[in-house]
């Protein structure tokens, strides 16, 4: 019924390593998350000063998307509304919720409050890339390949021709991002629950 969908790229940022399509691109041993995300940003050699204003969840998702799309994604072949973003995690925005609540004692900060929603990372990815398609943030206790596969298939069968999907989670020093680029009528790994699970676990 629907067009063939393929995973045309994947990227993980986990355990102080950045891996794309199974190849390690960058690592930085024994640094905390705050230093690590900045090190990855500098390694990418892009100019995006807004990066420094983001919370760690947004930084992580933003960086993973930069790596995911670099050199292999032809933005011009899609209308802005044809690109969707579907993400999930376990801790929602708790990492930023804790930081915001701490700030309330000295006067609530709007710059922190805005990051107390998990879907803000989707907003940051959309702003960076001009993506205007469907976007949803789900909460699951673990990466749920079946759920992601089904929800991405729904949005791609209805509206989107490309979708960035996967897992972005941060709580304190624990973090993990694994993102997939799914496209229609392009060569790649068949988009299936099994392949999502296999690639997620290979990281």
């Amino acid at each position: 019924m629907a067009e063939q969908k393929h995973i045309t790229a994947w990227c993980s940022i986990f355990d102080n390593k950045v891996v794309k399509n199974g190849t390690q691109l960058f690592d930085a041993k024994s640094v905390g998350i705050n230093e690590f995300v900045v090190a990855v940003y500098k390694h990418l050699q892009v100019q995006y000063p807004k990066f420094y204003k983001m919370d760690n969840l947004s930084k992580l998702g933003w960086l993973a998307t930069e790596v995911l799309l670099k050199d292999n994604f032809d933005k011009s072949s899609y209308a802005p509304t044809q690109v969707a973003v579907v993400l999930a995690n376990a801790n929602a925005s708790l990492d930023s919720d804790l930081k915001y609540l701490e700030s309330v004692k000295d006067g609530a900060s709007p710059a922190l409050f805005v990051y107390t929603l998990p879907n803000i990372v989707i907003g940051e990815i959309c702003i960076r890339n001009g993506f205007k398609g469907e976007n949803t943030f789900y909460i699951t206790v673990h990466f749920d390949a079946a759920m992601i596969h089904r929800q991405v298939s729904e949005t791609m069968d209805h509206k989107a021709a490309a979708c960035i999907c996967g897992w972005v989670d941060v709580l304190g020093e624990d973090y993990k991002a694994v993102l997939f680029l799914v496209e229609t009528n392009k060569e790649g790994i068949p988009f299936s629950e099994t392949n999502l699970k296999k690639l997620f676990e290979s990281n």
Binding site: A90, N91, A92, L94, L117, P118, N119, I120, N135, T136, F137, Y138, I139, T140, V141, D144, M147, Q151, L171
Partner: peptide, 29 residues
């Protein structure tokens, strides 16, 4: 932190009613 998580609440609600399938949770502002 685990008690606060939306998946914990979803699990409690699903068990209360006896829903068979794992609930879907949406948190999109």
């Amino acid at each position: 932190y685990q008690r606060i998580a939306l998946y914990t609440s979803a699990g409690l609600v699903a068990r209360h009613f006896g829903f068979v399938n794992t609930p879907i949770i949406i948190s999109n502002a």
